[in-house]
Amino acid sequence: MSGIIEIIFAEFNYWIYVTLMMIGFYAMIAKKNLIKKVIGANIFQTAIFLFYISLAEVKGGTAPILLHGHDGADAAHKAVSEVIYVNPLPHVLILTAIVVAVSTTAVALALIIKIYEEYGSLEEDVILAYRRQLQPEFSEHARQKQEGEQ
């Protein structure tokens, strides 16, 4: 019983991150609402983070914080020989990546606010229709200039 569950468990994180990535990816492409796209991006990115953290896991490992306080090098070696630490490298990478993700989200949200101020909507198709109406070939400036000359 527990053996089967162990097998499922062994791959379970991978299944979950695949599912989450697909959900997030789908939301990024298919959802018309801009906020939903950003939510999707967040899910997508966290799914990848989950993958990295899963990589770092070592069975029976503890958090990569040395367990002895500050007693010096010898103690450190002793501690290492007794304790298995999980892989710290993916953690560091993901710390960086989380920051990148939040920065991207912040920029995306700022863009969304600007878009809303300009078009009064967060739906992609509404915005698109509005832009078509405006005849994108002529920029604002060119149109004013033309009118000025006539």
């Binding site: 991006a41 991207t104 920029v107 300009e118 915005i127 994108p136």
Partner: peptide, 15 residues
């Protein structure tokens, strides 16, 4: 407007 929308699309694709 146009620039912001372009930037947002780029952001999504870039992400």
């Amino acid at each position: 407007g146009d620039g912001v929308v372009a930037s947002f699309n780029y952001l999504i694709m870039g992400t």
